[in-house]
């Protein structure tokens, strides 16, 4: 059998583990952060402006 990465044999289990772990970590962080930004109840800029106007 050829050495890892020499072609023709697909990817070995270590490669799959590293790839899936890295993709899961980054993908998870990406969806967590964007979900909180897009769907959070935290006041948006517009609301902050309105809040400031109310204070004034």
């Amino acid at each position: 059998m050829e050495a890892p990465g020499q072609g023709g044999y697909g990817m070995n289990w270590q490669g799959w583990i590293f790839m899936i772990a890295a993709w899961t970590f980054i993908g998870g962080l990406f969806f967590f952060a964007f979900k909180r930004i897009l769907f959070s109840k935290k006041s948006s800029h517009e609301n902050q402006d309105e809040e400031q106007k109310k204070k004034v």
């Binding site: 072609g7 023709g8 697909g10 990817m11 490669g15 590293f18």
Partner: peptide, 17 residues
């Protein structure tokens, strides 16, 4: 050729050396 394909590229990149 059947000797190499795009999945070998992922192997090249991700298999730990």
């Amino acid at each position: 050729t059947e000797h190499y394909g795009s999945m070998d590229g992922l192997a090249f990149l991700w298999e730990p050396k």
